[in-house]
């Protein structure tokens, strides 16, 4: 393969697959907003909401 093709292939893989890895890691690090701030009306036990 030519140098420029190899280079662009590596850049494409790094950016796009790297973007996937980064977005998965970001989601795992902060899976949800703070529970106490925002109780889920469907998930909470029966009672008065908001």
């Amino acid at each position: 393969m030519t140098t420029s093709a190899v280079l662009m292939m590596i850049v494409a893989m790094l950016v796009v697959w790297g973007g996937l890895v980064a977005s998965v890691l970001f989601l795992r690090a902060r899976p949800e907003v703070d529970d106490t701030e925002l109780p889920d009306p469907d998930a909470a036990p029966p009672g008065e909401q908001g």
Binding site: L20, S23, F26, R30, E32, V33, L38, D40
Partner: peptide
């Protein structure tokens, strides 16, 4: 109701392009 929509969306979009 309380689901992390945008962060999931980023995963979906990058997975599609990947």
């Amino acid at each position: 109701r309380r689901a992390n929509m945008t962060s999931s969306g980023l995963v979906v979009a990058f997975a599609n392009s990947s």
